[in-house]
Amino acid sequence: MSAGLAIDAALALVLPVLAWAVVATPDLRKAIVLFMALGLVAALAWARLAAPDIALVEAAIGTGVTGALLMSCVPWAESLTPASRRARADLALAGALAVVACLGWAIRALPEAGPGLTPAVLGALEVSGVEHPVTAVLLNYRSYDTLLEIVVLVAAAIGIDAVLPDDDARRRLAPPARSLVGVLSHLLVPGAVLVAGFLVWKGAHAPGGAFQAGAVLAAGGILLLFARRLRPVPFAARALRGALLAGPLLFLGVAVAPLVRGGRLLELPVAWAGVLILAIETVLVVTIAIVLLMFFPARVLASSRAPAATVEDPP
């Protein structure tokens, strides 16, 4: 038995067991940790399936950011009454079954195995401005989808502000930690910025791109928020709104510009496609990172603390 087959068999065994453990664990915190472990194993599985783009997104967004987000929801979930929790669990089960049914139907409706769109995608790679087929699809052939996704993300950020308004929680936040945490986060966050930049640059010819880079950048920001080295920025701040809108506005500008010259919407001039894609992706990184960071406003951070100053930091 080859080593690859052994790894695949182990993944195939571990994934369903972990998935069952996530659902069957009554303790919410344990279930979330198991969920994050499931995400990491799923990322490995994606990597084994030769889909490194999806593996990166699964590890960064599906596991990292979603795990931190779920953890910050635990106090709220624990405050629910048992009846309300049961009703929500039933709804979630119904939703999950509906998704499984839809996916099953979609898989059955797939055409028989064949080359699919691969020859078309690879054939037009020369005029796409990038060398990586996934980036070419996302930012050139089907950039319409990506543009709409970004608008949905910004709408989500507005929704977050409506659900979690930035009230007086900012004043209840602890002062910056005077411990190793600050020093270590100062060591690690520049690395996160560097990796984010690398992922965007790399996206032109290898797996990577704005979503992965944005998630890595947001992870650095979340670290600074939890270490109290960064105060949550209120939604009203001009800089935050500017950063949030920069990505969609630049993307829209590039999308509409060809119309002026009599071209078609989202038509990228071949000579400029590479530069335009890199510019859009770089600005999108900031927008995506800000949206992900907005899930951690002052109130979430404050509620993750024990009430009152019963325990002080050691001097």
């Binding site: 411990s179 190793l180 945490v181 690690l188 690395g191 670290l223 024990a306 325990v311």
Partner: peptide, 22 residues
């Protein structure tokens, strides 16, 4: 070295959170 820095950082954060939670 990256894993060392990030694991000592997450160790500190988890321990602080546990201490604050009593």
């Amino acid at each position: 070295s990256l894993v060392m820095v990030s694991s000592s950082l997450s160790c500190q954060l988890v321990a602080r959170a546990a201490r604050r939670a009593g």
